[in-house]
Each structure stands twice: as structure tokens, then as C-alpha cells.
Design a protein around this nucleic acid. Sequence first.
DNA 1: GTTTAGCACTCAAAAAGTTCGAGTGCTAAA
DNA 2: TTTAGCACTCGAACTTTTTGAGTGCTAAAC
Lengths: 344, 344
Amino acid sequence: MEEQLSERGKRILEAVIEDYIATAEPVGSRTITRSHALALSPATVRNVMADLEEMGLLASPHTSAGRIPTDKAYRLYVNSILEAKQNLMPGKRDEIRRRCRMAGKDPAEMLKEASRLLSTTSSYMGVVMAPRMAANVFHQMEFVKLSSHRILAILVSQNGTVQNRLLETEEEIPQEDLVRMANYLNGMLQGLTIAQVRERLLAEMQSEKVRYDSLMARALALSEQTIRTDSTEIFLEGQANILDQPEFADAAKMREIFRAFEKKSLLLDLLDRSMQAEGVQIFIGSESPLLKMEGMSLVTSTYLTGKDTVGVLGVIGPTRMGYGRVIPIVDYTAKLISRLLESE
Amino acid sequence: MEEQLSERGKRILEAVIEDYIATAEPVGSRTITRSHALALSPATVRNVMADLEEMGLLASPHTSAGRIPTDKAYRLYVNSILEAKQNLMPGKRDEIRRRCRMAGKDPAEMLKEASRLLSTTSSYMGVVMAPRMAANVFHQMEFVKLSSHRILAILVSQNGTVQNRLLETEEEIPQEDLVRMANYLNGMLQGLTIAQVRERLLAEMQSEKVRYDSLMARALALSEQTIRTDSTEIFLEGQANILDQPEFADAAKMREIFRAFEKKSLLLDLLDRSMQAEGVQIFIGSESPLLKMEGMSLVTSTYLTGKDTVGVLGVIGPTRMGYGRVIPIVDYTAKLISRLLESE
DNA sequence: GTTTAGCACTCAAAAAGTTCGAGTGCTAAA
DNA sequence: TTTAGCACTCGAACTTTTTGAGTGCTAAAC
């Protein structure tokens, strides 16, 4: 634990990590001297590896197997990549752009597409969390009368996000009233964020003047119902990709993982956390608070859809993940999506 | 193949199927005499089983194993269940109703919820195909101006289905014009189905009078863009459930299945087919045209969301599925959804 | 003082060999 | 027609053996 990491140690550690990422097999001293042009004999490498093991950077599954990197080693490795700030290979960049057919899609669809994009280009799972509705800017509200007692409420945000809700009313409300209600609300709520809208509606419902205007009261009630829910959407795509990872080959583990991701609330926690900081962030295996994330890592980046509306997207894969490849993909995709979504 | 199925043969076949459904293990003559109160010795059962095998209803994986039912046997079995028209256990019925919290949801969300419902109550996969948009009845169209060159088009069907599309315009269109355009279109398209709307728009775009009214022309163009796509949505839920099925325990098979369902087009074909006929339909393993469906069966039923709008929902599980349980679930859910969705 | 060759040792995985028992088909008696 | 009896089959599960990649240590080489 004490000793400082020498330059040579660093190179060997890197070699182990890269080999392990490539093969998913414990890496032996021999393999390393062959694949990575180090002018060292296996014996020397062995010595160094023993040191690395002592430092908690490598572990051996059993005596006569090679070494595998620990989470601590991955962390070191990833940090050095992040520092280097590698650029995305131009080929990949083109691929991403090409696959990114977003024309005419509304934001929700675009995010789903982005998730799919992340999953196919990384060949792991893509995940995108939509910005909290609360941060969106109110643009317009509309009440569409479907039949005598059914009204469809449509809430449009400035960035094009649409939320609708089907409302059943006790008494029939005439069409003109619906229009007047919408006008009244649209005037009142212009330019507020959805969170502010919510407050404003509640405040307004308390106020004196509303007491005597049943139309307004009703308008407030309806809009309040519409805006009440704020379920953050998460788009998780490419789950089948993780089936290809040898570390999850056994059925029990697979099941566990799929079950874990079925409850999106876990994921939500994690993504929420990575929304705190800007830019690319990485959670490696045990660093994540999700027990079920054992053996998995998450590479995320924040993206913007407007001034204050920030969402998170990223890639989930095995801890043994091609970080060098994935990090730029996530980074670039986040920027691309920000560009495409930012209200002009 | 020749011989007719005797009453006794039928009972034994049924016993084999039910045991196999319960255990997923080949069923031996012994087991049957024990579990199903047949006053017969194993030897007799063996004789009968040999006959059944000859008829192509049973198969043995190898000499010293029990027998498993063939798809042909399942077909026979399922038909007899369908004839019997079992009712859903009242407990299950309550469970379904209770879990079915649909208040305030728009149709798309309700269908997704229904799919989840099917999956949890059956413990297989739930699948719901939304009715083709084309069959929906046009109710209203709305253009919301988001910024100078971005317009959000919202298309509302009579049943509450909403479809929106983000449009970029070359030149800025003033708000009043958007309102006039919407009014013009809404007047023209009232009460038509979406399919008819599409035709009508195209026809109108050809007509003389539009040539000289650029506003109308633009209105038509925008609405045509909005309505152009008709991607049928499919909601597939509970995929993790099939991981619990012993027959898919091995990783390769799982992967194959997940991959197959990732492309929803395959599923679409199959569901489209089952939309031809009314009521509960069953596709057993090899009967399905999907090669990948090997070992899987599909129980579907049509549902209605209006007069002519028909969708399909159902359960996908292993061929070795509890049909007696699943069929009533699917049947009842279809009816429930029809009731909830039918425009009052 | 590193570095490396050499060597005994370890241990999982693969291969080969055993045992076990559920299940069969056939025959002959009930 | 049914059933008891019995020899036979064959995969699953368990054991044993073999194999070889990999290790740690020691002592010689640089």
C-alpha cells in the first residue's frame, strides 16, 4: 500500500488492464511480455505484479491463474484517460452523426433515439435520463374536448416536450369555456418553469379572487391535475448487448441484472447523482451504491436542453469496459444531443 | 398416425402435458400413475405412451428418459381448453382489476400499463400492439409555435391518442396564420379516419383552389408531414420473466431470444396476423412463422378502442406454458382494455 | 542492486472414467 | 387386456486423472 507507483509499474498495470479488457481472462506475466513491447522478462514482470498486488491494484483469482485488475486499478486507469482527454476517432464520430436521424422527432423520441445510439455505438447499454420536467419552461396549455365528460389536457414546454393527460369531468364544460380557461392560464403562466407553474397554481387556488370565479377555479384545478405528476423518464436501450459479455454468461447473474434494471428507480438514483457535476463522470463497480451493479460500470455525461434544463446520458457496461472507446462516445453524444435539443 | 385417439389416450396425454408444464422435465410412466389418479400400472401407461408417440403426440429426448409433448399435442390440448371456455378465477380477476390503475392516462400509457399487467399476472411476457393510427378518428389538429422557425404540430384522435411532430419551417409563420391554418384543417377533416385524412390531404394538395392560396397550401404541407408516419407501437414488457424459465437457462438461447425481440418487426408480423381473427388465438412454437420463436408460444386476443379500431394484446411464453391460466387472463384483459378505452 | 533463467509447486479446467437410477421395451403370466 | 418382471439404455452426476498456464523462490548473470 505504501510504495509509490513507479513508471514501469504503471505501464505494466496498464498492460494488464488492457489485456483483461480485451480478453476477460486473467492475465499472466508471459502474455504481457509478448503482447506489449516491454523489454522485460516474465520473471521481472512477475515481481512487479506482485508489488501491484500488494498495493491493491491487482488480484489473482487463485494461485496459478493470472492477475485481474481491481476496481482501484480501473479508477487509476480511467483517471489517466480522462486527463488525456482523448478525442473520438473521426470514424466513430461520423458513424454517430450518420446514425443520428432526429428530423422531426419530439424531444422524448430524440432521447430514446440517443439511447439507442449510445447502445449501438458502444455495444453496451445506452441510458438517457430526460431532464426533470420541472426545469422545463412552460409554453402553452391546451384543453381539447373529446366527448362530453372527457377532456384531453396538453402541456407544451418551450423545448417541444409535450405532456398530456386525460381528464374526466363531473359536469360538461362548453368548448368556449375551455378556450377561455386556456387563455387565462397561458397568460398567467407564460415563461415560468414548470416548477414555478406548480407553485403558482397552488398559490392562485388559495387566493381570494378565485373563490368567486368558478371558471378560473376549475381551470386551475384541471391544470393542476395535468401538471401534478413528474415522473422522470429513463430510456434504457440495448440490454441484449450485455448478454454478449462473458462475465455475465451464467443465467443467474443475467437474471439478477435484468431484474435490477427493471426497476428503474435504482438507476434513477445513480443518474441523479451524476447530474450533480458537469461533464463526463464514471462510476466503477463497487463505487456505485447499487449492490446490483457489481461488476458493472457507468460512464455518464450531462447534457443540456436549454439554459437550466440538464439531463444525463451514458453507457452501462461491464467494469471491464473499453473506457478509451466509450468515454469519447459518451462525451460526443452528450454534446451532439445538447446541440440538437437546445432551443434556438 | 392412423389410429384414433382413445379416451384413455387423451387422459394420459393430458396428464403428460400437465406434468411437463409443471416441471419442465420429461415425464415417465411412473410419475403419471402416481400423480394422476389413473387406475393403471406404469406398464399399461407405457404402452399407451408408445402409441401416442407413434401418433406424433409425444417424443422422447432419448431412450431412457420420459416423454415430452410435441407441438401437435399442445395444439390438441389447447383446443380442448378453448372449447371448455374456462373462466378466469375470481381471484385473478380481482387482481387484474386492482392492478389496473389507469386513471388519467392517455391511451398509449394505458396500453403500456396493460402490457405490464399481462406480464405480471401471467409471469411471462406481456405484449400489446396499439391499433393502427390509420383507423383512429381525427379529432383536432393544433400548431404551437415554439420559436421563429420551429412549430410543434399536435394531432389528437377522438380516442385521446396524441401524436406530435416537430417541424422546422423555412420562413416564419405568424401565430394568427397558424390558428387559421388549424381552423381550416379542423373544419375540413372533422370525423374522418386518419387514413381518410391522409388521402384527403393529398387530394386537396392537388386541387386548383389551393394553388392560389399559399396559406392553405402551407397548412396542407405541414399537416401532411405530421400525419405521414404510421409506426405501429408495440409494448413488450416483462422480458426478464422468461429468464426464469428453465428451458431458456442457457446463455446462448437467451441471447437469441432477446435479440429476436429487439427487432420488433418480427413481432409485428405475428401480431398483425393474429389481428385477422377475433377473440383469443394461439400460436404454438413451430406454428409461428418466426424461426426464432422455437420453443415459444403466443396467446393473443384482439381488443377494441372504438368502432373500427382494433389492436392485439397477449402473452408470450414458453411453449410449455400454463395455457389454462394464461388464456383466461388474456381474454379478460382484452375485454377490460376494450371497456376502458372505448370512447364513451 | 537489478534482472533473468531455472525449477518445484499449485490448482482450475478439461478429459476420461465410474456409478447411479429413472425410464424403456419386451416377454410371459394373470 | 393388463400387469409384473427383467434386462437393457443412456444421460446426469460424481470421481479421478491429466494437462498446462501460471506462480514464487533461488541463485546465477549482468
